[in-house]
Amino acid sequence: MTMVAKVNLAEAFARIPEAWSPHVAGDINNFQVKLVKLDGKFDWHHHYSEDELFLVIAGRMKMGLRTGDVIVEPGEFIIVPCGVEHCPEALGGECHVVLLEPGSTLNTGNVETEKTRRTLERLD
């Protein structure tokens, strides 16, 4: 039997100990709902075959794009299509973001850095 459960985002984000370490909060078909805390600037990267949705829950995020930066406020989201180079950055302190992307998506895409997380912890 499939389990139905709700997620309290404030409680879930409180369980994430560090920035740039996505945690899986749920699964939708081949997609995952991931929660991540942003603090400072990430690495420029792109994904060969995965689109990503970034929904800002708390704080502010700048999505660096080669075509121009986009500021994303709480309650707003941005979709970065596959192949588009991007660089998320928290503005003015920590930022909490919900990601919706295929489960196979590597957080640093086409680059390998100290922020690369090949295995994600689950919050459920």
Rank of each mutant, 00 (worst) to 15 (best):
Q32F: 10
L123S: 02
L99M: 10
E101L: 09
R60V: 15
T113D: 04
G64R: 03
V80M: 08
V98Y: 00
R60I: 11
K115D: 04
E89T: 13
V80F: 09
Y48L: 11
V98W: 03
F54M: 14
S21F: 11
K115C: 04
T116W: 01
K41N: 13
R60D: 09
N30S: 13
D43M: 13
R60N: 15
E18D: 04
P88H: 07
A58S: 15
W44E: 12
D124I: 00
D69Q: 12
E94S: 14
V33C: 06
L123A: 07
P102T: 02
V98E: 01
K34W: 01
F54E: 08
V4R: 09
D124T: 00
V72E: 04
L9V: 09
E101V: 06
E114C: 15
M63V: 09
H23P: 06
V24T: 10
V33W: 01
H23S: 06
D43P: 15
A12K: 11
N110C: 08
H45Y: 05
T67P: 13
F31G: 04
D51A: 05
E11L: 10
M63E: 10
V56E: 00
L38G: 06
L9C: 10
V72K: 04
S21N: 11
K6P: 04
R122D: 02
I28K: 06
H47Y: 01
A14F: 14
H46V: 14
L9N: 08
L55E: 04
L9I: 07
G103I: 10
G92Y: 11
G109R: 01
D27V: 12
L53C: 04
